[in-house]
Design a protein around this nucleic acid. Structure first.
Lengths: 164, 164
DNA sequence: AAATATATGTCAACATGACTGACGTAAAAT
DNA sequence: ATTTTACGTCAGTCATGTTGACATATATTT
């Protein structure tokens, strides 16, 4: 096998390295979402519900527009999921105090319970991965994933993630 | 705001750190898939087609079962996408030589062109992130993502990723 | 040789979660 | 008073996943 690509070709090695990194992300993300998916199925909720519960839980009082901006879906898509969550008592809306056009979103008590239950399995998965990998690796993980975020929205996204 | 959680509570800090890591992965993956999605739309292909093209391109001659095992979807789901790709001349099947029940999958010339075109944008994104982050960070990225892969299939997955 | 298991394909029905486009309503901003 | 904004909603469509049932060819086992 005197394959040109495999002998002394740094460009190919680089390409191969990148492909491996891409697949790694694919497999990691696949298994990262598997746990929550499983739990949510018992409630007849899907990944879309999970995302709403997650972000509302992290940003109590956020508006619908903010949520739309994070999820990058249409309001019609969001609405089905959101009204479902409201109807079934996991999320509630309150009229904005300053701008009364806004509907500010909050988790109900039941919503918080579900959010905790679901995020726990995900946190445990990440915690294990962090522990196995060590602190230096975690810093690297953060650096690389930050770099994968679209440059034009990176600051916005990071502010959301790191917000106090 | 004398919130108990935010003052001197290491357990909370840990939870907060983990939540940030989770959101980081969400945002990174969202933008990681955006580029390919955009290109594939011109062909009326979706993310499912992308995954097939990617894995067949990386594993020429792989069988349908292998692909099913990687993608973790039902054969009925795969079949719709796969027969579409075959019909339109991006993928071809050949009967297995040893086991003639198997259908071994290959990219056609056109398939290779599309695969290259799509994976290029993704590789460039990852290459930029790697360059910005530096080699040490890349090693950390690999360690952590590896740890996120379901333990019971980790070796299998890693063998697939690193296969020569 | 006959029975069973495996790899694959296919039909049909259905759920989820995305999309577009059009229209409505209340409140804020100009 | 008019326009813009934030949100909701109706209707239709598409992509991608699911389950269940059944078929066919080839390998494997008894």
């Amino acid at each position: 096998m005197t394959d040109v690509k495999s002998v002394n070709n740094p460009l190919f090695l680089r390409e191969e390295e990148l492909r491996q990194a891409i697949e790694l992300l694919f497999f990691a993300y696949r298994d990262f979402t598997a746990g929550p998916d499983k739990i949510l199925k018992d409630y007849n909720f899907g990944r879309a519900h999970h995302r709403v519960i997650h972000f509302v839980g992290r940003n109590e009082g956020m508006t619908v527009s903010e949520l739309l901006d994070i999820l990058r879906i249409t309001k019609q898509s969001l609405n089905r999921v959101l009204s479902n969550l409201i109807q079934r008592g996991f999320v509630e809306q309150r009229q904005g105090e300053e701008d009364r056009r806004q509907r500010c979103l909050y988790l109900t008590e039941e919503g918080h319970l579900l959010e905790q239950k679901v995020s726990r399995v995900q946190r445990e998965l990440v915690a294990n991965a962090f522990r196995e990998a060590g602190g230096e690796a975690v810093a690297g993980y953060r650096k690389v994933l930050t770099g994968l975020i679209d440059e034009t929205n990176r600051d916005t996204a990071l502010n959301r993630i790191l917000k106090t």
